[in-house]
Design a protein around this nucleic acid. Structure first.
Length: 455
DNA sequence: TAACATT
């Protein structure tokens, strides 16, 4: 257990400084550090006077307050001989210290060579970091001192919030107004589709983890915005890892055609389903009839995957949150008209190029007659979209879009394997010639391996 | 136009 030790402000100006403060210098030599040790030793030798220096017994502003956006710093590469009192003068150079704690082994109580440091003011922390981090090496240490935001401050993600169930008409300014009471907003972005329409969600990045937490406490579920189908959602944005996990679950959901509890689409996507206009019946797990006229309004077979239910609270009960660039958000665009499709899809494709969908399983061929070769795929089609497109015709054993290894760009063709020839034939019937944008899909049986071989 | 499970 690390018992937090409060270090109160420096001795009042009236008291003559025992020792002149250290000035950080630009050079990286050790020459300016010996005074620190000297300082420490003198402080120790002062014995009882220490309380005067620390102010521990002195009345006055005994409990300093810190700014809401204060940063907790980690200080590393500290000689084990230096305790809080020794370190204090060094760091006080940059501002009033709120808390300074040398980390000690919880069992042995041994100095671990590092400390946590919080200044009252955020600015002090920034100054200390830029003046000290890797700029000096304390005596006896091999590596320069480390002064940087503590890991607990979250390296970005822990300060970033996902906000769902916003009103469609709420812009960045409205969102800022909502969150501003909880701290300093570094970033505020309302997610929008290419036509500029809000997706009803946003990301808000605060200056610190504490502010972000306060906003969650204060706002999550607190109200229902005009035009939103349920109460405001405020939670930490997905980390990269959670995003990856989400993608994989998405893939898994697509493979098992009728899993008991289909994972909802990304919430943002779900919100947008209303924009899509007519969406033919056929909820999750319900296969549609084949399109009457392929290539005209032939998006029939693409629609059954849109199982997002706007306003479904379950979207958030799985502990996951949507994230831009994740596969889920892209799916509702399949509902759009081919023209809208073109523009809607473009930005999503970028995300896919950067984070190619994981292959759901080993690419594998089904039995003879079950494997399709598909050409004229849209450039932005990935494996996931390929699966989406062919899932309505049967159990998809594998789907693979070929990607140029050098450019990571789709080669605009791929393979889909079903577990039976009938599904394959149905898919050919329905999808060959299917128009997407200016192109028409070519869907044929894959050539058998030994075809085309001489004799 | 033709392109068919890669590293």
């Amino acid at each position: 257990m690390v018992s937090p030790e409060r270090v109160s402000p420096a001795a009042p100006p009236s008291a003559p400084p025992l020792i002149p403060p250290l000035r950080p210098s630009a050079d990286n030599s050790h020459s300016d550090w010996p005074p620190l040790l000297h300082y420490a030793n003198r402080l120790r030798s002062l014995g009882g006077q220490l309380s005067d220096v620390t102010g521990g017994l002195r009345p006055g502003p005994a409990v300093p307050t810190k700014d809401h956006d204060a940063i907790k710093l980690f200080v590393g590469q500290i000689p084990r001989g230096l305790d809080e009192q020794d370190l204090k003068p060094l760091f006080e150079e940059f501002g009033r210290i709120y808390e300074l704690t040398v980390l000690k082994d919880r069992l042995t109580g041994l100095h671990k060579g590092c400390a946590f440091l919080t200044y009252c003011a955020r600015d002090s922390a920034l100054k200390a970091q830029s003046a000290l981090h890797e700029q000096k090496t304390l005596p006896g240490m091999n590596r320069p001192i480390q002064v940087k935001p503590a890991a607990s401050e979250g390296r970005g993600e822990d300060r970033k919030l996902f906000v769902g169930m916003l009103g469609k008409q709420q812009g960045e300014e409205d969102v800022r107004r909502l969150f501003q009471p909880f701290g300093h907003i570094e970033e505020c972005t309302v997610l929008r589709s290419p036509d500029g329409a809000s997706k009803g969600c946003a990301f808000v990045k605060f200056g610190s983890q504490g502010e972000a937490q306060a906003a969650i406490q204060g706002l999550h579920g607190s109200r229902t915005m005009a035009g939103a189908s349920s109460s405001l959602v405020v939670k930490l944005a997905d980390t990269d890892r959670e995003r990856a996990l989400r993608r994989m679950q998405q893939m898994a959901g697509q493979l098992g055609a009728f899993q008991p509890a289909p994972l909802p689409l990304g919430a943002c996507g779900a919100y947008t389903t209303a924009v899509a206009g007519s969406s033919p019946g056929g909820g999750p797990g319900t296969l549609p009839g084949l399109p009457a006229s392929i290539g005209v309004n032939g998006f029939g077979p693409l629609t059954p995957q849109t199982n997002g239910q706007p306003g479904s609270d379950s979207l958030y009960n799985n502990g996951l949150s949507p994230y831009p660039g994740s596969a889920p958000g892209s799916l509702p665009s399949l509902l759009l008209s081919p023209a809208a499709y073109q523009s809607t899809y473009a930005p999503v494709s970028t995300a896919f190029a950067q984070q190619p969908s994981a292959s759901p399983q080993q690419q594998r061929e089904g039995p003879e007659g079950c494997n399709l070769f598909i050409y004229h795929l849209p450039q932005e089609f990935g494996d996931a979209e390929l699966i989406q497109t062919f899932l309505p015709f049967g159990a998809v054993v594998s789907a693979k879009v070929f990607v140029d290894r050098a450019t990571n760009q789709s080669k605009c063709f791929g393979f889909v394997s079903f577990d039976n020839p009938t599904s394959a034939q149905t898919a050919i019937q329905a999808m060959n010639g299917f128009q997407i944008g200016m192109k028409r899909l070519k869907v044929q049986l894959k050539r058998p391996k030994d075809a085309n071989r001489p004799y």
